[in-house]
Every structure is written in structure tokens, then in C-alpha cells.
């Protein structure tokens, strides 16, 4: 299982802050996980169309090409705006 978390405007668009996902073997990277989740239709397609989508794996910010594996915590969110 992969624990997926959503934040800020993306969390609101999806109507949830987290979910547990058991992805198919084709999901090996952040990008392929995003595509797998987005393919479920409304409202999940927001993941595929979000501008400047950012991601973290195990609480480290990463690029979409970063690998993911069972047991990881993967987060998707918009660009950060703190400070």
C-alpha cells in the first residue's frame, strides 16, 4: 500500500486529505502514481490537470520522476506559499 496525502487547494478539489492506494505494478514513479490516480475520473482528474503540481515522497520534496514503492508516503500539493 501507498499512503497518499493531499494539501491545500488540491485537498479541497479532491474532497479528501488522504487515502491508501494499492497501485498496479506499472506504478513505479510519482508521475505514474499521479496518472493512475487521475485516471479514476472526477474529481481525481484534477491531479492530471493541476498547474505546477508538486510532490513529496516520505516527506522530502521530489520531482515527478522520483521512484515510489509500497510503504511510501506520497503527497501531492500546489506550490508552497509560506513565509
Amino acid at each position: 500500500m501507498i499512503q497518499v496525502r493531499y494539501f491545500a487547494s488540491l485537498r479541497e478539489a479532491l474532497g479528501r486529505s488522504s487515502e491508501s492506494v494499492d497501485p498496479p505494478p506499472s506504478v513505479t514513479t510519482v508521475a505514474s502514481l499521479r496518472d493512475h490516480l487521475a485516471a479514476r475520473g472526477e474529481p481525481w482528474n484534477a491531479l492530471g490537470t493541476a498547474r505546477n503540481l508538486r510532490a513529496a515522497v516520505n516527506q522530502d520534496m521530489v520531482g515527478m520522476e522520483a521512484p515510489v514503492a509500497a510503504g511510501d508516503e506520497v503527497a501531492f500539493f500546489p506550490p508552497v506559499t509560506g513565509g
Binding site: 491545500a8 505546477n52 506550490p79 506559499t81 509560506g82
Partner: peptide, 22 residues
Amino acid sequence: LKTRAPFWKKEQTPDGARWVDA
């Protein structure tokens, strides 16, 4: 911090709430 720490601001404006753009 501005570009790497995971904080997000949401503003309340006269036109309603909006997430701040980076």
C-alpha cells in the same frame, strides 16, 4: 523557506476565500 517548506496560505477577501498563488 518560501519555496521549499510546505505551507499554504488561504486569504479571506471581500469576494470570498482564495488560495494564494506562488
